Computed example of a mutant assay.
Amino acid sequence: MSDQFATIITDAIKQLNSLELPVWQKTDMFSTTYRGRQENVVNIVKTACQLAYTDSTHTVYELTFSKGCPGDTDADHYLNEEITPIKLGKTLPNMHVDCKYSFYAFGDADYMKDIEQIVNMAEAKGLNPEGMHYATKLSGSVNDLFDYFNEALSYAHEHIRHYVMEVTISVNSPSVSSN
């Protein structure tokens, strides 16, 4: 929530694009899409959030993670890339984040056991999951949150054919102190 929002967003993406990333990437007028091996995508998205972070700016990130869409085949070869850490030459912040997410399993009749397992994984990570209408709220460090995303998506990859996880992350929200 800054009058410099466009610069904040584009600078973070430009910093990432200056690196050799092991993913397919496309930016359009709505978003940036990263496609590739799950661990690489999650790490790149976390890094983008960290690069856009400043101490005094309320920032909201909208993310979608998915698997199983039959028409999504662009650059499939990136799905087999090695796990590659991002090397920026600087330390990135491990800021506090608040998050709400919804996990949707498609085509599985008994999906609630998988969603329960995924939420329990957040509890084990210390992210204090709280139920809310059609979502789960999490709170913790950005590193713990994205480590959890990797674990949850790995579980989902092994147990669910087609899924989508919709995520909203908020940093420095002025409404947190009023809750």
Rank of each mutant, 00 (worst) to 15 (best):
Y111I: 14
D114A: 12
I44E: 13
N43K: 11
D55N: 14
E82C: 03
M132N: 10
V41Q: 09
V171W: 08
A75D: 14
K125D: 08
Y53Q: 02
Y61C: 05
K90R: 00
V60H: 07
N94P: 04
K67Y: 01
L153T: 06
Y53N: 01
Y34I: 03
Q50W: 09
T57D: 00
H96A: 03
T73S: 02
D55K: 13
H157Y: 02
K90G: 02
T27H: 14
T33L: 04
D98T: 11
I13T: 05
P22V: 02
M29D: 15
S66A: 13
A124I: 02
F106D: 11
K14P: 15
K87G: 15
D76T: 14
S170W: 11
S141E: 09
F65W: 07
H157G: 01
K14F: 15
L63I: 03
E130N: 12
M29K: 15
G68V: 08
Y104V: 08
K67W: 00
A135M: 01
L153R: 06
T47D: 07
K137G: 00
C69F: 13
Y61P: 09
A75Q: 14
T57G: 02
D72I: 00
A105M: 08
T54R: 05
F65K: 01
C69A: 09
R37M: 03
Y134D: 08
L145E: 11
F30Y: 14
K125T: 03
S154H: 15
T27Y: 12
L138A: 03
T168L: 06
Y34E: 13
N179I: 14
Q50M: 11
T84V: 05
D11Y: 03
Q15I: 00
C99R: 08
D144E: 08
P22T: 02
F5W: 10
V45R: 11
N94Q: 06
P129R: 08
T136S: 03
G89T: 03
I8S: 14
T54I: 01
S56P: 07
K87P: 15
S31I: 11
T10S: 11
F65G: 05
M29W: 15
L21E: 12
F30I: 12
H77K: 11
H58I: 02
V42Y: 08
D98C: 11
N143F: 06
G36M: 00
M165C: 07
L63Y: 07
V119H: 06
E39F: 03
K87V: 14
A124F: 02
T84H: 09
L19E: 09
D55I: 09
A48I: 09
G89K: 07
W24Y: 11
Y34Q: 13
M95E: 01
M121T: 07
S154V: 12
I160G: 10
Y111Q: 13
D108C: 12
D72G: 00
V60Q: 05
A122H: 15
L19A: 05
S66C: 11
E62T: 02
A122K: 15
D76M: 15
F149C: 02
Y163G: 01
V171R: 14
Q15N: 00
T59V: 11
V176C: 10
A6K: 13
R35M: 01
R161Q: 03
V60N: 06
T91V: 00
Y53H: 05
G36C: 00
T32C: 10
I9Q: 14
Q50T: 04
S56F: 07
